[in-house]
Amino acid sequence: MLHIANLYASVAGRTILNGLDLDVPTGEVHAIMGPNGSGKTTLSNVLSGRDGYDVSGTVTFDGVDLVPLAPEARAAAGVFVAFQHPVEIPGVGNMYFLRTAVNSIRSHRGLPELAAVEFLGLAKEHMARLAMDPAFLSRSVNAGFSGGEKKRNEILQMSMLEPRLAILDETDSGLDIDALRIVAQGIERLRSPHRSMLIITHHTPLLDDVQPDRVHVLHGGRIVRSGGPELAHELEADGYGTLPIGVSG
């Protein structure tokens, strides 16, 4: 399980995460909701080990202390982030990228590398479920992809990499209704007793299709409320305006 206690993170002296506590047991899907500027993306960055933050507090995953680990070591430990804005890498083929990623994660797990043919078969299977054209594989990573294509590509990577902790950072933003459903189904398929998922969002529609076990409200850099799935709908009705005034930031 993911265990976060008393987590602080600041950038250039500005505190963004302010004593955050959160536990996500194995097999559960939790949603983190919160207004803009509440620290949602910072949480995702800090969990995945992005440079540039002063971090203190505890973050363990299955007992392993994540804080000192490099991003690739966290990925090897099973942490995956579906990014809000997946970056473009011109000239690097999507298939080559995906296969390199899959094989580097596999080698960390002591599994043999997937041969090209095997990999291709698996990738096509996953892509069909996400209604992705196989031509995606021959394009450069995210280069010239539409918003929806990029998000689907993230879900494809997530499916192929089989993470043990999946963090979805605003994966639903900018998606039309059809793309949202496909992405939601992709997430739902990955729900597993062996996997924890953290869905970061400030909208509720995704949570209609992906039923979270718990919903947390992030505000001022800490969790100010937690509840069952009904909390999402409550927030939808009342907005974040009724939240207690937390620490600014």
Binding site: R50, P71, P86, F97, Q157
Partner: peptide, 8 residues
């Protein structure tokens, strides 16, 4: 960072 997050 994107690549490293994917294990490279």
């Amino acid at each position: 960072f994107y690549c490293r997050q994917r294990g490279l």
